Simulated assay, not measured.
Amino acid sequence: MPPPIKAAAESDALRARIEDFSFYYANGFQAIKSVSMPILDRKVTAIIGPSGCGKSTLLRRLNRMHDLYPGNRYEGRVILEPEGENLVGRDADPVLVRLRIGMVFQKPNPFPKSIYENVAAGLRVRGISKRQVIDEAVESALKRAAIWDEVKDKLNGSAYDLSGGQQQRLCIARGLAPNPEILLLDEPTSALDPIATAKVEDLVQELAKSVTIVIVTHNMQQAARISHRTAFMYLGELTEFGETSQIFNNPQHPRTENYITGRYG
């Protein structure tokens, strides 16, 4: 039997709890199998594992992305703390969930709009229409995403005119603008060069001071550099969860050790 999943220390505040969570595609395939893990408040949690292990599927479920496709279903709960709200419950509005749980994808995906309107999009969905409020929120989000100085003089310009690294930071700003409780990052640097990757990693560490972050990454060195806790997934199951230093230096499960040491993956 595998060793039990380690829980967060009692002193760690929780932002969310994933409880016995499973996900099934419309064809009946079970992609996520009874995953339970804590998401710590204002910490970076990395999810690692070989390709096809379910890490990106789990991340997107937290944002209710799979609701867009008929026939998909899930079991279990994702509880947002301290409210105790089940984000995947029938009463939870998926649109509001996506504003509270921001999402940034592997490839930068700015809207075909101006830089300003990209960041303002979530605010308008929230029903905010006062120009001054939107202006202040857009500026704040761009500053938090460390791109304000690069775009402040061209806010009305197309987001497509930005470099790949700038577009990704713009997408992070777009996710931050509605002031989410959690920001999900799905391999956010895999399409970027080393310089742009370093900027995003620095940004993630700075943002974790004010927002909870969950990042899926195929880059184990990146997980070791920027995360506080790491979850290792294999074939849809959560094999091991713990402090990042423990996972990389003293893994408790043979599968985790084999993956960390490069024996497979």
Rank of each mutant, 00 (worst) to 15 (best):
N118M: 03
L96Q: 15
Y24E: 04
S245E: 14
A198F: 12
G89M: 09
I115K: 11
D20M: 04
D12P: 08
D12N: 12
F23L: 14
P188L: 06
G165M: 02
K130F: 07
G28Q: 06
R225L: 07
V97H: 09
T261I: 06
E257Y: 08
I115E: 11
A177K: 01
P178M: 04
T244R: 01
P3Q: 11
A137P: 05
S163R: 08
L87N: 09
R131N: 09
H253Y: 08
A223V: 02
V104P: 02
N219R: 06
L183A: 07
E187A: 12
G49I: 00
D202M: 13
E83S: 14
A196E: 07
L203Y: 05
G165I: 00
A137C: 08
E187K: 12
K113N: 09
P194S: 06
W148I: 10
Y116W: 13
T261S: 15
D20W: 02
P3I: 03
I48L: 03
D202S: 15
R126D: 01
A16Y: 03
T256L: 07
L192Y: 13
Y264T: 02
A223K: 08
D161Y: 07
A137I: 03
F232L: 09
N63H: 15
L203G: 09
P38F: 10
R169W: 03
E257A: 15
M65I: 15
G84I: 04
T261H: 07
I260V: 15
H228V: 06
L40Q: 12
K199F: 11
R126N: 05
E117K: 14
P38Q: 10
A198D: 04
K143N: 03
F248K: 00
Q205R: 15
P188C: 10
D20F: 06
P108N: 08
I79R: 00
G262Y: 01
K113H: 07
R90F: 11
S163D: 01
R42Q: 14
P254S: 07
N258L: 14
Q205F: 04
A224H: 05
V138Q: 08
I39D: 10
P108E: 09
D202G: 14
A231D: 01
G242D: 04
R131W: 00
N250I: 05
G236Q: 12
R144F: 01
I247P: 00
Q246L: 08
G175N: 10
K130R: 15
H66T: 06
F241A: 05
I128F: 06
A8S: 12
V95M: 15
